[in-house]
Design a binder for these strands. Structure first.
Lengths: 254, 254
DNA sequence: TCGGCCGTTGCAATATGCGCAACGGCCATT
DNA sequence: AATGGCCGTTGCGCATATTGCAACGGCCGA
């Protein structure tokens, strides 16, 4: 809506690809060098952009700090974290926590597997929305029309032969997930990795987050992983209870 | 330099304090509501700001993704990480990696202690610049005038009785650190936590990063921790060698 | 030493963002 | 159930902030 700000903000993802000099930034933005310079200067003053010794620009430190603060404001994460750790101690596998936001599903917390073989994922990274078990849970809870609209808008990359192929299949899967109250991803993203996931609900019953346990099938078979489902669901329910205020937490001064 | 962008970016730290509604944002910015609305909309389109169900705004998801990408682009981090892990395996304590940027020192990597007692720190968080061992190393390497100017500009919070009390003491400490090529923080930030740190240098010999080992004195005494210094320095030197290209890395195709 | 490249600055034209005022929906109060 | 007030939203005209240009200067390589 605001051209100037729009251009300035477009610089950030551009620099996320790697450091760039003034000329490249101006070119990619489609503006004059002097314009790009002024925008970069403003970003710099706010610490979002850093000018390294070779004069090229890259993303700056304040971005980290902001992201961290944003993270800490997500109270669901704070509440869930100890539960995730406990679950990880019990089963040993990688545990993820994810939320839905603006047509994306992203991991907001993670406890790494205690097995040497770990899966690749990052906090803050958007998940493969059409196949991830946590994504299914979060999207399955959307109102019908939104769910349909979103499903039609998505791409359905075939990460593996078991990936969700198209919108119809996805909507059908979401219906199932919605019914049963849990979800899986059996090799839909990475051939050898399986996940089981359960929803975390707020006081009004709506799904506010989802958590999953993931493991490569060289460590446990899909069946063994599914056997963990009750444990995962109990953990998710415990978090739901605490989040919605049903379960009295340690400090009753509030 | 650019008024519009400046205003827009000022919204981010404001929202980092916690969710705020339109009125509050406009008030804090000192602009008309309609102006704040347009800025927020632009930020929203770029995913930097999210509008939650109660209509209030908070920091958005793309911020995480950007910060993560920025992080991955820091090649020093990539090179150092395996060394940090190895050091952690050898000594068991928390290992940090930090860089200096724009008057701040911040952690860019961390390997958690394997002891149950962990210290509180976050990747991306600015460190206590006047007391942290890694900060001393990074600032000690600045050119004299800059070092002095920075030291005078800083605040010297007394986290503990052993915290650096003022600019003079700090500069004296930096001189010592510069001479000896390593640094400690013995209870200067948290009464019961000690750190030893060593510098990582680029090809030109300048300090580009610093790493530290931290442990609470309920686990090891300060003396025992200091005994790890040679190991820490060897690790830092190994990273320096690889970073500056002196040490041939695994893939010689470049 | 010279030439070209890249970042930087001042300026004039105008596109762009600004504040205003009025609208409309929502919630709480009577 | 009706009403008042609050908050977010919109269209508009004016003025200002932003833009692109052209010229400068420093740096590096030829």
């Amino acid at each position: 809506m605001s051209q100037t700000v729009d251009r300035a903000l477009s610089i950030l993802p551009l620099l996320a690809e790697g450091p760039a000099d003034l000329g490249r930034v101006a070119e990619r933005l489609g503006v004059h060098k002097s314009t790009a310079l002024r925008l970069l200067r403003t970003l710099h003053e706010h610490g979002l952009v850093y000018r390294q010794s070779d004069q090229r620009y890259r993303l700056g430190a304040r971005l980290f700090a902001l992201a961290q603060e944003a993270m800490e404001n997500l109270d669901i994460r704070e509440i869930a974290h100890p539960h995730l750790v406990r679950l990880n101690e019990q089963c040993g596998h990688t545990v993820h926590l994810a939320v839905h936001e603006e047509n994306e599903v992203l991991y907001i917390d993670k406890v790494d597997s205690r097995y040497p073989v770990r899966m690749y994922s990052r906090i803050g990274k958007p998940v493969a929305i059409t196949v991830a078990a946590v994504a299914k849970l979060l999207l399955a809870d959307l109102p019908e029309p939104e769910r349909r609209a979103l499903a039609e808008r998505l791409d359905y990359p075939l990460y593996t032969p078991r990936s969700t192929p198209n919108a119809d299949a996805f909507l059908k899967e979401l219906a199932t997930v919605r019914e049963q109250g849990w979800a899986t991803d059996l090799g839909g993203h990475e051939e050898s990795i399986n996940c089981v996931a359960a929803p975390i609900r707020g006081a009004d019953g709506r799904v506010v987050a989802a958590m999953s346990v993931s493991a490569p099938n060289v460590v446990v078979t899909a069946e063994e992983l599914l056997a963990l489902l009750p444990l995962v669901r109990r953990t998710a329910d415990a978090i739901s209870g605490e989040y919605s205020g049903r379960t009295p937490v340690k400090d009753p001064t509030v």
